[in-house]
Amino acid sequence: MIVTPRIVFRLVLIVLISVLLQIGFFSQVPLLGSVANLLPVVVVAIGLLGGAVTGAVTGFATGLLLDAMIGGTPGVASLALMAAGYLAGRWREGYDIVSSLVPPLLTGALTALAALIYGSLTLTLGVDAPISILALREVFVQGLLGILLAVPVFPLVRRIVRPALVDDSLSPRSRAAAGTRSSRRRTFGMMRGQGSL
């Protein structure tokens, strides 16, 4: 991703709208005994499109904004979301996204991981109450809802940051042209690894 001031502005806008949507809508709509968490889905999408550093920085900033708005312990949500964004970016830099199923499945896994990290940190910071086995269900359900949310969110984020993408390999045009440019793919792969932030 080529990060220009205009793209930074778009990323800030994405983060702000996502946090407002999360606390004003998703957190207040119970689904399958839990609530959907839009934030790791958005952070993973940005990480997958922009690389590890972009993903990590976006996750860090998103977590700080969330903690400031809901009064949580500063740094906890940042750490969880940063891990999700970084790992998504590392995946993108190491592997080609060969199928449109990869982003939702990876988002589900990393959303569950973020929920697990958030829960573990909260536990480490001192919860005196007994822990129900349903806490594990929360991790699973958030992962599942993350997969579903990624289906519309990933293409939407990709559309918003498209001008900054070096190689949009998931777009239909790119897929159609993929057969004729296999020799160039290695070069693009290297550029993706180097082009973040």
């Binding site: 590890a52 990590a56 920085v57 312990t73 500063p74 906890v76 940042s78 690894g193 932030l197």
Partner: peptide, 23 residues
């Protein structure tokens, strides 16, 4: 490429340390 990797790791370390300090 090595320079990029070093910078990426440095940013990651800074962010993790910032999180831990905030907590």
């Amino acid at each position: 490429y090595r320079k990029q990797v070093r910078r990426r790791r440095a940013i990651l370390v800074v962010l993790v340390v910032a999180c831990l300090m905030l907590i």
